[in-house]
């Protein structure tokens, strides 16, 4: 489905088995770190990412795929909007707890 995009886009989802937030990398695999995400700057690029993400959903690895506006933080991709930035960082009130700061949990291989 062709559609206009406003700016650079990235893809976020939740992993099926544990619900953890993951960002899609260029090769269609996923990372808990937003900075690893692939960013598409044009419509064709977004569509290519979506195809990869949908494949991953069809393989039951992720669910709740969202194509979101990307910005940069420290020279790396990061979600532009509050809600998705929250996903990238974990709850602001429990900085001790997000997957992002808890490698043991994060690296659970599922």
């Amino acid at each position: 489905m062709a559609r206009k995009i406003k700016g650079p886009q990235m893809i976020v989802a939740n992993r099926l088995l544990d619900g953890r937030v993951v960002f899609m990398k260029a090769d269609g695999t996923w990372s808990a770190v937003a900075g690893d995400a692939a960013v598409a700057a044009d419509e064709a690029g977004v569509e290519a990412l979506e195809v990869l993400a949908q494949k991953s959903a069809d393989e039951n690895y992720v669910l709740s795929i969202e194509v979101i506006d990307a910005t940069e933080r420290d020279g790396k991709p990061f979600p532009a909007h509050m809600k998705f930035a929250m996903q990238a960082k974990g709850p602001s009130v429990r900085p001790d707890l997000g997957y992002q700061v808890s490698p043991a949990w994060e690296q659970t291989d599922l």
Partner: peptide, 11 residues
Amino acid sequence: MNGLYLQLHAY
């Protein structure tokens, strides 16, 4: 139906 939602960070 079994009380399991998906939220921002997890189920």
